[in-house]
Write a protein that binds this DNA or RNA. Structure first.
Lengths: 137, 137
DNA sequence: CGGAATCCTGCCTGATACTG
DNA sequence: CAGTATCAGGCAGGATTCCG
């Protein structure tokens, strides 16, 4: 780190400390931080259906890079949400499946999904109203 | 666009189209995309307690920049989750409060929060186990 | 006070190539 | 097949400044 950036870094660290206090109040932050990862939800949805191999997930969540997929899978495994099973066949086989913990999280995510399906049209209406209002004024 | 990147761009667009199909299957994605915004949840939590003014939210969610706060508030307002009320006093007063729609989303978010509080220790245990396992091997 | 506009940095992300 | 390593770019996000 250069001297020039020291002050900025310092202030950032300071701010980080400050809002950590608020984060303590809201423990959901840490889990939401996980769900924030764009791919986490998709992978979770995919594997929730049935255990999948690496390649299958790649295809199911088409658009994800190996890097992100691996990173996501590692994170989910680390958090005990997915289990990774290696079968030492000749071309090595790796299967990912949900853990009970992962299942329970998936249930909650389903709750959000339900909310989304129920209220999505209201949100769209609100957006259109807002946009036309802004466009008109 | 150069000729050299045409192929890559093409494939990217292709992939995008593909996983859009998957996203259609998972409508929760759009709402999750909202919740993914780091600050959305925090702001939602803050305003859910009581209507707040811009400055109050800034302090409550200490660490957020005006840019991100404004951006977040605009997004939430656009989606009809928050309402923005301007009182033309001498120093203008702007108050944000939850809409019924916002309240209902907050209820769901509370569900996540509950899950988080209930299972956070399990996740931490899993993390420690994973880390020590990796560190040992 | 509440916000808009600008600039600028760093990280997230993706593409590519290589390994076991 | 299931990754790892490396490189390059874009864009989210922060700091700063100015306006109503």
């Amino acid at each position: 780190m250069t001297v020039a950036t020291a002050t900025a870094a310092r202030r950032r660290a300071q701010a980080k400390t400050e809002y950590n206090a608020f984060l303590q109040v809201c423990p959901s932050r840490q889990v939401l931080a996980r769900l924030s990862d764009k791919w986490v939800t998709l992978v979770l949805c995919a594997v929730a259906e049935r255990p999948m191999r690496y390649g299958e997930i790649t295809r199911a969540v088409a658009g994800v890079s190996q890097k992100m997929l691996t990173q996501t899978l590692r994170g989910l495994e680390r958090d005990g949400l997915l289990s990774r099973e290696v079968t030492p066949t000749v071309p090595v086989t790796v299967t990912y499946s949900m853990t009970p913990l992962g299942e329970s999280l998936h249930t909650v995510v389903e709750g959000i999904k339900d909310w989304a399906e129920t209220h999505m049209d209201q949100i769209n209406d609100a957006r259109e109203a807002y946009d036309s209002r802004v466009g008109t004024e």
